[in-house]
């Protein structure tokens, strides 16, 4: 039995957990993973609504999102490697050259 409320609240929970990860973790790797969780949450919401409207458009959207997520992770991790070369750390608090 399909219940959109459950699915949406689940996706909201995932979204909040992801947001927690970005804000509270100081390990950039894990922050990137948390962003992935948030994107997943959005995809889940999309598919719930697709089911609601019987509309394949959202499926296409979700597919695009996955590709974008993969591309984003690639750039993000490459940047992380770059940063690691300079700082020898993936600690986000070490990124403190630029402020004020």
């Amino acid at each position: 039995m399909f219940n959109p409320t459950n699915c949406l609240i689940l996706s909201i929970l995932l979204f909040a957990i992801g947001a927690y990860g970005v804000i509270a973790k100081r390990n950039i790797l894990i922050m990137l993973m948390s962003v992935e969780i948030m994107l997943n949450a959005a995809n889940l919401a999309f598919l719930t609504f697709a089911r609601l409207y019987n509309d394949p458009t959202a499926h296409v959207f979700v597919l695009m999102n996955m590709a974008v997520a993969a591309a984003e992770v690639a750039v993000g991790l490459a940047l992380l490697i770059c940063v690691f070369r300079h700082k020898k750390s993936v600690d986000s608090t070490k990124l403190n050259l630029l402020k004020w």
């Binding site: 947001a19 970005v22 804000i23 973790k25 922050m31 986000s92 402020k99 004020w100």
Partner: peptide, 17 residues
Amino acid sequence: SRRIQNGIVNNYAMLIF
């Protein structure tokens, strides 16, 4: 106001949130 920009990216994310 410049104190807001304290250099730690997590805090920026928190402010956005």
